[in-house]
Amino acid sequence: SEFSSRSGYGEYVQQTLQPGMRVRMLDDYEEISAGDEGEFRQSNNGIPPVQVFWQSTGRTYWVHWHMLEILGP
């Protein structure tokens, strides 16, 4: 990996993601499973900070930056 740390990767995702971009989950996290795909909606200063609309659940759920792989527009 070109990223030395999880936080470095998270910063990359945070700087790159734009609303509407497709993402894939890298880790299991509460209701969301690794491999689930969705659409980035928004972020804020909460914890976790990233709101994604997940195809698997049909609704939005908040996750962490480093848990997401960017699939593209």
Rank of each mutant, 00 (worst) to 15 (best):
S1A: 11
E2W: 09
E2M: 13
F3L: 12
S4M: 05
S4K: 09
S5N: 10
S5A: 11
S5Y: 12
S5V: 11
R6T: 14
R6P: 14
S7K: 14
S7I: 12
S7M: 15
G8D: 11
G8S: 11
G8R: 14
Y9P: 02
Y9E: 15
Y9H: 09
G10L: 03
G10K: 09
G10F: 02
E11N: 13
E11Y: 11
E11P: 09
Y12S: 11
Y12K: 15
Y12L: 12
Y12H: 14
V13L: 11
Q14K: 15
Q14V: 08
Q14A: 12
Q15W: 04
Q15P: 08
Q15C: 08
T16R: 13
T16G: 07
T16K: 13
T16L: 10
L17Q: 02
L17R: 01
L17V: 05
L17A: 04
L17W: 00
L17K: 00
L17P: 02
Q18P: 08
P19M: 05
P19G: 03
G20C: 02
G20I: 00
M21I: 06
M21R: 00
R22L: 09
R22E: 00
V23I: 07
V23L: 05
L26P: 01
D27W: 11
D28Y: 05
D28V: 00
Y29H: 05
E31V: 12
E31K: 11
E31G: 05
E31S: 05
I32F: 00
I32R: 01
A34C: 11
A34P: 11
A34L: 08
A34R: 13
A34N: 09
G35A: 10
G35S: 03
D36Y: 00
D36S: 11
D36F: 09
E37P: 00
E37I: 13
E37S: 02
G38R: 03
G38V: 08
E39M: 08
F40A: 05
R41I: 15
R41S: 02
R41C: 13
R41Q: 13
R41Y: 07
R41T: 05
R41D: 00
Q42P: 08
Q42M: 12
S43M: 10
N44Y: 01
N44L: 04
N44R: 15
N44M: 01
N45D: 08
N45A: 13
G46A: 14
G46W: 11
P48D: 02
P48L: 07
P49E: 11
V50A: 13
Q51G: 11
V52I: 13
F53P: 02
F53R: 14
W54D: 00
Q55F: 13
Q55R: 12
S56A: 10
S56N: 13
S56C: 04
T57W: 01
T57A: 11
T57H: 13
R59K: 10
R59S: 14
R59Q: 12
R59A: 06
T60E: 14
T60W: 02
Y61M: 14
Y61T: 15
Y61K: 15
W62C: 09
V63D: 06
V63L: 01
H64Q: 12
H64M: 04
H64D: 05
W65T: 00
W65M: 00
H66T: 02
H66A: 12
M67V: 02
M67R: 01
M67L: 06
M67G: 01
L68S: 00
L68G: 08
E69C: 05
E69T: 06
I70L: 04
I70T: 00
I70G: 05
G72A: 14
G72C: 08
P73I: 05
P73V: 05
P73Q: 11
P73G: 06
